[in-house]
Design a protein around this nucleic acid. Structure first.
Lengths: 123, 123
DNA sequence: CTGGATCCTGACACCTATGTGATGGTCGGG
DNA sequence: CCCGACCATCACATAGGTGTCAGGATCCAG
């Protein structure tokens, strides 16, 4: 499919999809006329990318990660080099820390919201 | 206390503390000579700010949030106007969404890490 | 051929938190 | 007085993902 359709299917802007290719997160084929040609599986792949972006990873990190996880269809390359893991562990820690921070923030927020709803001594 | 000491106590750069004031996250007094004068409670407040930043909230959001929660010890003013809650709910949703994304990413990440460690069928 | 939709590349703009440097005021100790 | 530490403001830089526009090319329909 072409870039416009992928954009529609994923809800991601054409601009971003081109950027993803620039960052090697997507590797679409090219029609003879220069148009990008994406596969069906790229829909899922873009969703993955979006998820990782939403988690605060940057494109370089995602680029490292994707070859290890995208193998929904092709599974040869699902085992990353161990050296890659060394780079992944800090990322993991950051995510855990972020979840912790978010959870704490959420609790605080919920206390605030509860207090605003009913200032009665319920908590 | 002055800005340098607050920076030392919190581990946040002086630059960031000034930025926080610019964003109305901190409202230090001013000495006649122009120096900022922070209170003891600002140490905790900065920690809160950092926590929220780490949660991915931006300064505007934090500015809305802080007046409701800064009373961790003092709970008098923990009750915000209900109209404020309307603004808080989207924030809450964003936090929940982010936790969801992070959790999913963490799972993916852990699968990759596990696969790299031992490609044996252990999980 | 014409018009419109879609695509291409390239480039600049933005936002946001933070770094960094310039330039100068304030204060305390020697 | 003078130096060093600290503070002030202003301003420019950075990074990363995205918006947006410019200037063309392609393709299809009429």
């Amino acid at each position: 499919m072409r870039i416009g359709e992928l954009a529609r299917l994923t809800g991601v802007s054409v601009r971003s999809l081109r950027y993803y290719e620039e960052q090697s997160l997507l590797r679409p084929e090219r029609h003879p006329n220069g148009y990008r040609s994406f596969s069906e599986s790229d829909v899922e792949r873009v969703a993955q990318i979006q998820l990782l972006f939403a988690s605060g990873l940057n494109s370089r990190c995602i680029a490292d990660l994707l070859p290890c996880m995208c193998g929904s269809g092709t599974d040869e390359f699902t085992t990353p080099a161990p050296y890659l893991v060394d780079g992944l562990l800090p990322v993991r820690e950051r995510i855990v820390a972020q979840i912790t921070a978010l959870t704490a923030s959420l609790q605080t927020l919920d206390r605030v919201i509860a207090a605003a709803r009913g200032p009665s001594p319920q908590g």
